[in-house]
Amino acid sequence: MKRRKTHFSVDDTINNFLGRPVRKIAIAIMLISVLFPLYWLASNSVKMESEYLRNPPVMVPSQVTFDNYRSVFSESGAGRSLFNTVVISVCTTVACVSLGSMAGYAIAKGKMNKKLRSGFSLWYMIQKMYPAVCIAIPIYLVMREVKLIDTQLGLIIVNTSFNLPLTTWLMIGFFQDMPEEMEQAGVIDGCNMFQRFFLLALPINKPGLIAAAILTFNSTWNEFLFACILSINKSKTLPVVLAGFMTDRGLEWGPMAALSMVLIIPVVILVWALQKDFISGMTMGSVKE
């Protein structure tokens, strides 16, 4: 029941249900309200100190300077926290995708009875909903006990735990969509479960893997609560440094904007490059039956 692409009238009917001019105006307002704040951030990050603190505000910087960027890297330790953020996000992504795709494959295609199968998938579904703040205390106490406070490893473990349910859930969906005949052909050819997983299921579901990876990467990159609780100094990530900026350095909009840009640009580039997979993963992860 896919909509036929030749029928432009269908899209057109829905798009213009309030009339063409209203549509144009609404979209223009939306674009301005999304883009203007982003422009403001970007322009503040290249303004000189006299301009980002001026009242009334300066709309267009008279001179573009990269001093703010230099200052966050030399004074606020942006370099180190950028490095931490990259390491933590990459490791978490690798861990989540490998563990999650294995578990997803077992739940979708493995041999187990029906009750157990739906039990496991229910567990993973519920697990992706609980609020992280609820386990802040035990995690903090345990991490202190095993001396993982202020380490990258501690944050990798915590982030893996948060993102694993979603990754597994996504992979269950992708593996279930695989035609059953393919799996049986693999069995007839004498492949065991490992061979079928690595040679059949994974290569076919590459978009699924990419979707899971990019969602995990994005959420780990932006994660703040536990990065804040579990880091003192060495393992601070970019969001933690940015959140602490006000208390550390006061009202310096320029460097603050520059640090925000450093935090935003990598994920924007990554998500844009993989936009299709990102959107399909996001849709599947939330509204799939």
Partner: peptide, 23 residues
């Protein structure tokens, strides 16, 4: 337009909070 719409959603909530605090 979709690509532009993605930005507020994927940027860190800490960053959007900072941005609006500034505004």
């Amino acid at each position: 337009i979709t690509a532009i719409l993605l930005i507020p959603m994927i940027m860190a909530p800490i960053a959007s909070g900072t941005l609006w605090r500034m505004m």
